[in-house]
Design a protein around this nucleic acid. Structure first.
Lengths: 195, 195
DNA sequence: GGGTGCATGTAATGGGTTACATGATTCT
DNA sequence: AGAATCATGTAACCCATTACATGCACCC
């Protein structure tokens, strides 16, 4: 919702464009699906935060181009000033690792390796974003902030990769122990009252 | 849902206990509210993944103690083996920074500082978790995995703090420029067709 | 006496995704 | 020929949070 308003400060766009933009620019920070974008734009227009113009095209459907209004900018600024609150934590990979005793270590190793690969790719991407996209828009007033976001991604990915290294070492030690003792997984304790 | 099943491998518990446990142990990895825990337990019991025993108490309501069943353990293991998929990105702080040009830099500085303070506190907490909680359960089969999760938190928080330092430097430079030029915020470009 | 903690649960509400519906154009 | 892209929108559904309802016990 507010993200859409923010993207419209860059330039006027259609709902479809916004969908592309969300994926291309803030895709690693925030996500919005079309099922949400179109109704949101309707609402924003009803509230007078965006204005809408229709471009006619022969054959294909009309493009509705939305522009942020003065009121919309004020609203956005107000929202930007509200201190962001911590996100609800949802880290499936870590959750699964937390219960790792229930499963052979080899599986955990595979999962951590997979994550590391993904994050290595993301790290490269964030580096590219910082160089290419931002150096190109050097005189843009938004450029410094885009760069900060890209740096965040880089630093975080580097941290995750360091963690993955350390963790894989540990897991490989555990996997070795399991193999030597022929242990399959967390069948160690038998709970009473289990049925 | 699966998190509850996982916590029940540690020991049999009531819905209320699970709520406490979620906050205390996996609170920074995953979250579940009571409005979700109770219906989930009902479902898990209906599917035969947990069994339920009732403890009677004079005066206060009965405690329903849930234990994971053999079927539940199998189900859990199956879930743990599924490669975790990347989370939907939702970083409100970064999103607001991304649109930082719309607002005076002083506000962004305040937000980043606030985040840094929170993460500094969290870092200390993760360090404590690693030392206290985990060293106490040293012989637990879960201990190594809990430690890995705590290390993840530490490494990530350290990364965020490094980023915050770097970013605050940048922002202070920008704030200085704004002050000298008497600029309030992103009123630089006037869009055409704005109304 | 009033707040907090124990203890369970339901209902309303919100936020979001996926799937569906439609249909022309352009790329392979 | 068939897949992907452009383009908009709605409906069904899922997951989750918050608020509500209840009521005793304990502490200040």
């Amino acid at each position: 919702m507010q993200a859409l308003l923010g993207l419209l400060t860059i330039e006027p766009m259609s709902g479809y464009d916004l969908g592309q933009m969300v994926r291309a620019s803030i895709g690693h920070i925030w996500s919005e699906s079309y099922g949400q974008i179109y109704p949101s734009l309707k609402q924003l227009a009803a509230d007078g935060l965006v204005s809408r113009k229709t471009e006619k095209h022969k054959g294909r459907p009309d493009r509705h181009i939305y522009s942020i209004t003065k009121k919309g900018r004020e609203q956005l600024a107000k929202w930007l000033e509200v201190p962001p609150q911590a996100e609800v934590p949802r880290n499936e990979m870590l959750l699964k690792l937390f219960f790792g005793a229930q499963v052979p270590a080899a599986i955990l190793i595979r999962n951590v390796e997979r994550m590391a690969e993904e994050h290595r790719a993301l790290l490269e991407k964030f580096k590219r974003v910082e160089r290419d996209e931002i150096d190109q828009h050097a005189e843009y007033p938004d450029a410094p902030f885009w760069k900060m976001a890209a740096r965040y991604g880089q630093i975080e990915m580097e941290a995750h990769l360091r963690w993955a290294e350390e963790t894989l070492d540990e897991l490989r030690k555990l996997a070795g122990k399991q193999k030597r003792s022929g242990q399959s997984s967390g069948q160690g304790r038998k709970e009473k009252g289990e049925e």
